[in-house]
Structure formats: C-alpha cells, structure tokens
Design a protein around this nucleic acid. Structure first.
Lengths: 330, 330
DNA sequence: CTGTTAGCGCGTTCAA
DNA sequence: TTGAACGCGCTAACAG
C-alpha cells in the first residue's frame, strides 16, 4: 500500500480511502491511485485490515463428515453465498462426534476472528458444545435440534414432517405397517425422522415395529435389509436416508424379494442418483442448496445488524414418488 | 494478551514467549502466565500474529464442484491433514470453469496471506490460471494434467492406467471391443481416462468406437445407456465414473438388457455405494483420502523447507471386480 | 478533499 | 531470564 501511495503521489491514507470506496476522494485522484494499484498488482492484506478493524470478513464452518452428500453439498452452497456476501470462509472439522472436538473446532475458528459460525455438525454433541460458546460471535446451526438451545438459531428441514410424509404414503398404499432403518442415534436428524415415522404410524393406529439401527451407509442399509427380508410379513420400509435405501434395495433383491411388488422402499434426501436406481427410488427431497443459503443469510443478517436471531427455521421437505413404492396387492 | 501479562505481573512479551514455547522462561513464571491465560480464557489473535510474522498458518483450497464424491472427500481429507500439520484451511470456490474464476479464487486466497494453495479444480482452465500465479506461494494441483505446467507439482491417480485396467479386463473377458462414456471434455481426468481406454483398445488391436459424451452425472450415463442399448452389438461399456455407470445400469435394465449377462459395465472411483448397486459394480478404485493427504503433505513440505517441488506424483489405481462384468457368452 | 498521528495484538531485536 | 522499543499493513480520528 505504501508503494501504491508513493507511485500515485498521495498518502497511504488516501489509498485506503480508495480501496474502501470512501466518498471524499476527488475522482481524478482516485483514478491515479487505481492506476498505481493495477500497475503494482496491489493485494490488500486481510490480516492487517482485520487487526485494525476487528472485522475479519470471514465466517467459519464447523463440519463433521463432509463425505456425506448433504454436508458436502451445503459446504458448496454456503461458500457460494458467502462469497456473494463478501465473506471468506474458513473450515474446521470436528475430529470426533464429541463435545470436546466441536469445542476445539469452534476455538480454532474464534482464533481466526471469524465474524460468525455456521455449524454443519448435526450431532447431539454439537449443541452441547454450542451452549458453551461465548455469545459474542453469532452462530447458526444447521440440522440441529434447537429445542435445548433456543438461543442458537437453527436451520433445517422438518425431518419429522418428511418422515411422516413417507410413512403416510406407504400406509395409504395399503401397507399394514412400515418398518424403519434409522440413522445413528447421536444425530438429531435421525431421531427426528424416527419420531416422525413413529408418530405417523401411531396416528394411523398401526403397530410400531422396532426400528433397525443404521449409520447412514449403504452397508448398514444392506445389513438391515437382509434381516427384514427374512420376515415375509415385511412389505414396506422407510430408510433414514438414500444411501441406506440403496443397500436395502440390494439386500431385498439378493433375498429374492422384488421391489416394489413384494416390498416398497422409501428413502430420504433425494440424491442425484435416486431416479436411476433399480427401481427409481421414491424418497423425501430436501433442498440442501436452499438450506445452505438460508443458514448463511441468517448469519450475515446477524453480523450486519448486530441483532441476534433465535428460533428454528424449518423448511418443508416434499415426497418424490418414483417406482420403489406400490399399492399392496391384496 | 495485555490483560494476561497484567494479571501474571509480567510484560506482554513474556506472555508471547510462553505462548510460543520459547525456552528462556523460568518455569515458575511460565506457570503463572499459563494460569492467567486459563483464567482469562485467552484467545491468541491470529491476525496480529500473521501481521507480525508474515505467516498465516493457513492454507487455501481452490474448489470447483464439491458436490462430486471425489472432491468432497478430499476436502475432508485435506482439512484433517492440515489440522494435524497445524494449519487452518480457507476455501475459495471457482464460480465457473473458466480461467478468470480460478484466478479470482486464487486472488482471494492470496489476500488472506495463505502460505500455500491446493487446487481441487481439475479442469483445463485451472492450470492455465495456475501458470499465471506469482510463484511466491507454493501450489499443489490435484488431478490436473501437469504436463503443460511442470513448475506446478501435481498429485493424481494414474487415470490412464486405471482406464486401461478396466478396458483390458473387459477385453480379457472376451468382448470384441469396449464402449466408453466419457466425462466432460474440459476435465483433464476425463481426457486421461479416455486416452487410457483408447490406448488399451489399440494395443489389443480392437476397433475404437466413438466415445459417448457425459458430464459425470447419472443422468448423462442414463442417456448414453439408452443410445448404446439400441445397438445389439454392444457388450461392454467402460464409464468415466461411477455415477454415470449408475445411469448406465438403469438404462440397460429399462431396455431389457441384463447386466452382466448381455452387457458388462465398469465404472471409475469406487464410491461407497458401488458394492450395493444392481448388480454390484466392477470399478476402478482410487484412494481419495490418500490423494488428499499426499497433496497436503507435499504442500507442507514446500512451505516448511522453502524448497519448491515439481513433477507429477501419480498413485496407482486398482480394479475391483464385482458382478457387473462377465465373460462374453459365445 | 487530503495528510498526520495513533494504535489494533503480536513477534523481533536489543538492553538490562 | 526479562523488559522496552519498534514495526508488520491497515483504518479511525482529527487537523489542515
């Protein structure tokens, strides 16, 4: 910057004014400075600005497993939205699913003076950690059950509603009951989906079979599928996500049970491959891109207005009916 | 930090020495300082340190489409490795696939004084942009054809070798030739795979059918599959990635052609769902986690030694034979 | 409209 | 072993 000032024959302060679009600069001077900046390929120094203004123009992202479809998609959507809002994004992943790891990730972000934090770690441990974070930096939680920490605003799809959508769809198709392959118990999203499934079943006066444990992976869906296939009374299964549904489809096929003729299967997420599975998967769609954008905008609003927001911001998922579900043959 | 110094009854540089594990501090003083730090929940200020040392402890990640399996997996692996090496990571995604977008992403990272850059944007435009980057910050390119920019070290699987592996596997199974669904032409990885497939075919003296265009998506694989299914002479297909193979499997099924009885299909990547597709997919495995770690370690080595590395670092992919390929019935 | 001064929090260099 | 002075590149406050 000093060099630029020298070359343009002005003080470094004037250069600073030009960089920050300050109004009180004669346009002629401004041009001279801009020319010097181009000539020297001037790069502003974000660290110096951060130090002087106490504003880093950076938001932090706490992630856990970005190899899953949802989180990885949202990282993308959030980075995009952040760039448009003029923010850098720094990521910090939690090593484990425990409170200490999430706190550590948040600590690292705070060390970088981030102006706000979005947490994509939808695990029970995360909100315990969030409750312990000093409230001087705005936080938005994505996909976390915010009931226990109403002071942290949360963005998520209405998992229970989505699960109920799937379950009612199967009930309306004439299935006496619906089995469920659940996600990991320490993920609030998994619990919400299970709760939605359970409630829909109870509302319809149907028996509630024990949910089968899963871990979001196709492998766990496959294992659950092999168990369910052994029981001829099983005609409908709601899987906690699409990956597990893929494993389920495979297991049923291996066991000689045809989908959807013998068994109907519904997933959750609507991954891009869902229409091309065999059969094309009926599933609950959630719009991850919108979720990512919304969470960032909520954060940016808090940063720029200084007003803390709270409460849950739920978006409505929708059911996409394809060919893995069918009316029960009497 | 001033507060800590005050509380501990020392000067702020003594605190600085403690923070940086400087040897010349009496252990008693050190303890007093540490106690004060804990008491005040002291957070070092990364911006100030960056300004004073000109070292940001941050590496930058240039991404393009993190919704694809490979890139999203590597973001995760790289963040992990970076954390262990004591680096923060800041991400900047390229808006488009053009040179300007990649340059802009790199500019944003440089503004943050990153000490090194890993680029996960495996598109032709990326290396054009890389060639224009001032060489004062080390760069490692992942999955980019480094031939045209030997000064930028590159880490990738040997795509051509992987494609040849797949193609030879099909030839050895008795297929007269192998069709190919290619990835986007502006991705070097797609071109390398196509080249490997072509070379294997030529080496075996087989005819080389025109490759079908794809864009990595299941949808494009499905479209290609519908075209191939119309030709009864097609008995073997090598898809540029697993997503396209999923679409291919579906299209062949719709057209009444059974895999692997009528047509054999091979993918590339070995996504976690591959073993659970119908049929379980024979594919070329690449170890994204290792790729991510390697790229980061290569970068950290350059940063800490100050020695620039060059050249290509290729890792060998392997063929995973499952049930989507079968000897051609005579 | 523009320049001068001071300081953001930290590390480095020199003295003590 | 510790402290004082200085500067990293920038912005904020004031002066001109």
């Amino acid at each position: 910057m000093r060099d630029v000032a020298h070359l343009a024959g002005v003080s470094h302060q004037t250069v600073s004014r030009v960089v920050n679009d300050h109004p009180n600069v004669r346009s002629e001077t401004r041009e001279r400075v801009l020319a010097a900046m181009r000539k020297l390929d001037y790069q502003p120094n974000a660290a110096a600005r951060t130090l002087a203004t106490n504003r880093s123009q950076t938001i932090g992202l706490v992630t856990f497993d970005t190899t899953l479809f949802g989180p990885s998609f949202m990282v993308h959507a959030i980075e995009r939205a952040a760039r448009e809002a003029g923010f850098f994004v720094s990521i910090a992943s939690a090593r484990e699913l425990d409170v200490a790891s999430v706190r550590e990730a948040i600590r690292r972000l705070r060390e970088q003076s981030v102006e706000g934090i979005v947490t994509l770690a939808p695990v029970a441990a995360a909100w315990t950690a969030l409750g312990q974070v000093p409230l001087d930096v705005p936080i938005v939680a994505v996909g976390i059950d915010g009931d226990s920490h109403p002071e942290v605003p949360m963005v998520a799809v209405d998992n229970a509603a989505g699960a109920a959508l799937a379950t009612r769809h199967l009930i309306e198709l004439g299935h006496p009951t619906v089995y469920h392959v659940a996600g990991p118990a320490d993920w609030p999203e998994a619990r919400e989906r299970e709760a939605g499934w359970r409630a829909a079943l109870e509302d319809a006066g149907r028996p509630v079979p024990a949910p089968l444990p899963g871990d979001w992976s196709a492998q766990s869906g496959h294992a659950a599928g092999l168990r369910l296939a052994a029981d001829p009374s099983v005609t409908a299964v709601f899987c906690g996500n699409d990956q597990m549904a893929i494993g389920m489809l495979r297991a049923l096929h291996e066991a000689g049970r045809t989908v959807p003729r013998d068994v109907s299967v519904v997933g959750f997420d609507d991954v891009p491959e869902a229409p091309y599975l065999q059969p094309p998967l009926t599933t609950v769609r959630q719009d991850f891109a919108e979720l990512g954008r919304d969470s960032l905008n909520l954060l940016v609003t808090q940063i720029s207005t200084g007003v803390r927001r709270t409460g849950q911001h739920r978006s409505a998922p929708s059911l996409v009916v394809r060919h893995s579900t069918k009316a029960l043959a009497q």
